[in-house]
Each structure stands twice: as C-alpha cells, then as structure tokens.
C-alpha cells in the first residue's frame, strides 16, 4: 500500500532506538563480566566448578566435594575463590559456559558430569578434575583408567550393574520384565544400557527399554512402561533424574517397584539402589582437587569404592513390595521417609 514514506521515517526512528537498546545491553553484560573478575581479592587461587544440571546425585557429589575442600583448608572467599556454573540441563550452553570459565583463567577446573568434562577438557589451559563421570575412557577424557595423565584426573561413578540386578532379583524374585527409563542422548546412559543388556539374561530379566528425550517425556513414558513390566529401573541419567517425581508417581499409583542406581534417588523415594557411594565420590573428587592444586600430576582415575545398598522402607510400602529383614540387614543405609 502507499504508506511508504511514513513507514520509512518511523523505521529510522525505531532503528535508532534499537541500537540504543542494544548498546545498553552490551554495556550491561560487559559490566557484569568485568565485575565478576574484579571481585577476586588479589592472590587467591581460583577454582571453577561447572555442572550440567541440578538433581540429587550431582548435588550430593558437589556438596561433599566442597566440604572436603573446606576440610583441607580451601574455603571460598577466605583462602580460595570458587566460581560456580550450572547449565541447567541446557546442552547448547555447555560450550559457552566452558569458554567463559576458561577465559577467567582459573587455577583449577572441576567439571561434574560427562558433557561438561568433555567440553572443558577440550579447551582448558589449567588442570581439570572431572567428577561423577560414568565412563571416562569412553568419553575420551582419559586413555585408560589405571594410568594417570598430566592435566586431567577425576572420579568415576560407574555403577556395578550386575550387583544392581542381583539386588532387584533378591527383593522382587518374581519379576521377569524389567523396564528401563533412560535418555539415549546421554553418554552415561548409553554405557548403562549396554551393561544392562549384557547382564540382564544372567539374572533372568527381559529388558523393556523406555527412552525419553526430555523431562517432559518421563511421565507419559513411565506410564506406558508400567503397563508392560514388573519392575522399573532408572540409571544415573540426568534427564530421568530431573523427572524422577513423575516416575515415582507412576510407581506408587501402579504399585510397581522402582529401582535406582544412586542413594539420592532412594532418599527421594525410589525403592532401592546399589550405588556407588556418592558422598564418597564427592569427597574423592575434593581430594583429587586438593592434590592437583598442590601441584601433583599424573593421578589415575579414582573409581567409586564398593557397592553400597540403599533401601527406602516408605517407598517399599507405597509400592506394595515386601522387604525381608535379611535384605534390610545388608543395607548400608535404610531410609524411613521420603524426602521431597
């Protein structure tokens, strides 16, 4: 239509405004990053901690790791400066978080979860400690588990899947079909599902795989699985862990036993787990960080020690599963309630 000239003039004005807005935004963001650097009192070592997202396992690792650091004398704000970054489950921002942290020139980087560790190892100029990575060799972080490397080391939380299946068999002897909720897009879960496929026949289980691509899928896929299986297992999958509430909802409603592979999830209401002791994983990560900060190099990967059994009695009740006293005695820890 004929509004050409009027429109042109208006658009020129609006362009000016947009440029002004943009300029303000750039200055604002720049100021933010600049002040981040300025807050460090001079001389303090800088530790950068990055994680993929929030959920029980990772929180346990991180909390225990920080506590261990404090025990060894590294206290945030007093003897050291710790920067935290959380990708909140957004895989796309992982590289930019990595970039940003490396740009801050830390003395040590602690990367929790496989994707974060991979991104940071690639560009880090300082030593890296990875935490709670299920398969460090498969992820390309180290070439072998026994040999140490110069600039990188860390803890592995590989779950003993055969032990896990044994426990499931023990608590629910009649279960034949085992449903597995996982996100095939996660490296740890790829590893887990391979292990499970390997061990399942040994323990008399038929696996029914329920794959999810985002937290929103957890509820419908869990519901669908529940109709097809006798028990459900969730491994250390970040996506499923974020949606654990939904999986539990299904388990309680349909009275299906839901097993996990970490203590945090059992505390939150899963029936039982054979877990790498995640608090210990956190402590070990902290110990490695301290050694690297002191200058030690070439430390081999620290594997999660022992398999501990965690059981939640309240969950058993809600799922309609009976647990024998014998089994309870073998447990490292028995939870009486469900933590929200």
């Amino acid at each position: 239509m004929g509004e050409g000239i009027r429109k042109e003039r208006k658009e020129k004005n609006m362009k000016k405004r947009l440029i002004a807005l943009f300029g303000i935004a750039v200055i604002g963001v720049g100021a933010y990053f600049l002040t981040q650097g300025k807050i460090f009192p001079k001389g303090l070592k800088v530790i950068a901690v990055a994680t993929l997202m929030t959920h029980p396992i990772l929180d346990t690792v991180q909390t225990n790791m920080i506590e261990e650091l404090q025990r060894e004398g590294y206290v945030d704000g007093k003897t050291v400066r710790i920067i935290f970054r959380n990708a909140n489950g957004q895989m796309q921002v992982v590289p930019s978080i990595a970039d940003e942290l490396v740009a801050q020139n830390p003395d040590l980087i602690i990367a929790i979860t496989t994707p974060m560790a991979q991104a940071l190892k690639k560009i880090a100029r300082c030593p890296v400690v990875f935490g709670a990575v299920t398969d460090p060799v498969g992820a390309g972080l180290v070439s072998s588990l026994d040999q140490g490397e110069t600039m990188i080391t860390g803890t592995s939380d590989a779950v003993p899947y055969d032990e896990q299946l044994r426990l499931i068999r023990q608590i629910t002897p009649n279960a034949k079909r085992l449903g597995v909720l996982f996100n095939p897009g996660e490296a740890a879960s790829q590893y887990a599902i391979k292990q499970l496929r390997k061990y399942a026949p040994e323990f008399g289980f038929t696996l029914v795989e329920g794959s999810v691509s985002s937290t929103g899928d957890v509820y419908p896929v869990a519901q669908d699985l529940a109709g097809k299986v006798d028990a459900i297992l969730i491994s250390t999958d970040n996506t499923v862990a974020a949606g654990i509430a939904a999986a539990l909802k299904v388990a309680y409603k349909q009275k299906i036993p839901l097993y996990a592979c970490d203590s945090g999830s059992v505390e939150k209401g899963a029936l039982a787990a054979v877990s790498a002791g995640y608090p210990q994983v956190g402590i070990d990560t902290g110990k490695l960080a301290v050694r690297m900060l002191k200058g030690e190099r070439g430390i081999p990967t620290v594997l999660a020690k022992g398999s501990e059994i965690y059981i939640n009695k309240k969950a058993a009740e809600l799922m309609g599963t009976k647990i024998t006293d014998e089994t309870l005695k073998t447990a490292t820890k028995v939870f009486e309630t469900i933590k929200e």
């Binding site: 909140n88 489950g89 957004q90 985002s214 937290t215 929103g216 957890v218 509820y219 974020a242 949606g243 654990i244 509430a245 939904a246 539990l248 909802k249």
Partner: peptide
Amino acid sequence: NQGFTDISM
C-alpha cells in the same frame, strides 16, 4: 499432572 516443574518444560 507430572508432579514436578522443570525449566525445560
């Protein structure tokens, strides 16, 4: 319905 809120919803 699903029992939780997640930022990726």
